[in-house]
Nucleic acid binder design. Sequence first.
DNA 1: AGATTGATCCAT
DNA 2: TGGATCAATCTG
Length: 198
Amino acid sequence: MTQQPGKILPRSFFNRSTLKVARDLIGKYVLRRTEHGAMAGLIVEVEAYVGPHDLACHASRGRTQRTDVLFGPPGLAYVYLIYGMYHCLNVVTEREGFPAAVLIRAVAHCKPPAVPVLIDGPGRVCRSFDIDRTLNRLDLTLGEGLWMEDRGERITEADVLTAPRIGVDYAGEWASKPFRFRLARFTRQAKQKGTSKR
DNA sequence: AGATTGATCCAT
DNA sequence: TGGATCAATCTG
């Protein structure tokens, strides 16, 4: 992995079609700085939640206190608690007033010169990066503790796999749309036996 | 396959 | 105000 200075992804990056933002986030970096230290992770897997018509998108059930941030300006963090135990990190996309976001599902945690460690699963990503609801609504374009960077990784179409989103079977026809994007070289090893579901 | 865990949403 | 639901994960 090349190590470039890294440019913070600006609001204009997120103020685009959610599917394009999701695809383009693959190969970018999540950066975190706390009083305990700093860390960086190569974005390996994301999911797009493309708007109020998308039945898997939280905003499809209207604007509530929880979903209000999705209607805000692009580049804000949407962090929520799921199953009472885990957090999920999203970044708001598209123009203000249009509720959509991209979920960060997996990163490769980089502590050079060590080999990157794959952190697979949105709850694990947030646990590793010490992300909780106190970061909800944080502006990710400011570099204030949590932000995203372009470090010059070159990702081609062949490097990115698409698949249906996970855990949204309730969403009817929207459940099967290929709105999940994953860096191909981090694809899970197919289990030969056993029940690998979801 | 089942347990865990608590915020959120909406119907009662 | 209660109860179903949930962009998940861990242990069997």
